[in-house]
Amino acid sequence: MIKLKSTWLDLRTIDDLAAQNTFIHSLNSCTKLVTTLAFILFVTSFSNYEVTSLIPLLFYPVALMSLGNLPYKPIAKRLLLIAPFIVFIGLLNPIFDKAPIAKLGPFLITGGWLSFLSITIKLLLTVTSALILVATTGMNSICSAMAQIGVPKPIVIQILFMYRYLHVLLEEFLKTNQAYDLRSFKTTGIHYKAWGSLLGQLLLRTMDRAQRIYQAMLCRGFDGKVPLRSAASWTKKEYVYLLFCLFFFLFCRFINIPQTLGRLLTGGFQ
C-alpha cells in the first residue's frame, strides 16, 4: 500500500513539475527526447574503466535542473530507490576483476573498483536524464514527440490511455487495499487466500470500466481512430539547443576534460 501511495504521489509530483513554464519546458518535446536519447547513448558508450571523463557530463543534468527549476530531492529519492540492485551488481566487479589499473600515490586501484565507480556515475547520469525529460516535458508531449519521430500511432495511443487511467486505477487500488488492510490487522500484504478474489474483482471492475469508456467513445463518434494533436514545430531555438548539446557531448566524449584540467594545474605546481 505504501508503494501504491508513493507511486501515485510520484506521478503527481512529476506532473506538477512538468506543468511549469521555463526555458527548458518551452522547448519542443521532440528536441528534448532526441537530446536525452543521445545523452544516454554517449554516457553508455564510455568504456568500463572510464571515470574521470564521465564527470563533465554531469553538467548536463545539473544545467537542466537549474534552468528547468527542478528540485533535487524527488529526483535524488528516485535515484536512491533504483540504486541498490545496480550498485549490488556493480559491487561484484571489484571481487571478480582484480587487475591493477592505476596508481594513486601508494594505492593500487583495481579495474573492478574503477568499473564500479564508472557504473555508479553512469547510473546517476542515465537515471537523472530520463527523469528530467518527463519532469520538463510531461507525458502527453512526450507522446506527441514519439508520434513525430515515427512511433506507430496505436502504440502512442496505448501509452496515452494507459497513463490516463493509471491515475484512476491507482486511486481505486489504494482504496481497495486500504479496505483490505483495515479488516486484516496484519499489514504485510494480501493473504494468499484473497489473491484471486481481490485482484480478480479489481480486474472485472476494470474491464467493465473499459466497456463504459468504449461506449462513451462511441457516443462521440469514435470509429477506430483517435485524433492526436501533433507536436509543436522546430524553431531556431530548438536547433541551437540540440546542436549545442550534441557538441558538448562530443566534446566530453573525446576530450578528457578533468584529466586535462588536472594536468594543467598539477603541472603548474611541480
Partner: peptide
C-alpha cells in the same frame, strides 16, 4: 449519436483523452 448527447454517470469514464481540450475536441474531430 449526433442527435443524442449522453452524459455518463462517472465522468472519469467519459474523459479519456489526455487533456481537457483534447477531450472536448474528440467529438467534433470525429
Amino acid at each position: 449519436r449526433r442527435t443524442v448527447g449522453m452524459i455518463f454517470q462517472n465522468p472519469d469514464d467519459q474523459l479519456f483523452m489526455p487533456t481537457v481540450y483534447d477531450d472536448v475536441a474528440f467529438g467534433p474531430l470525429n
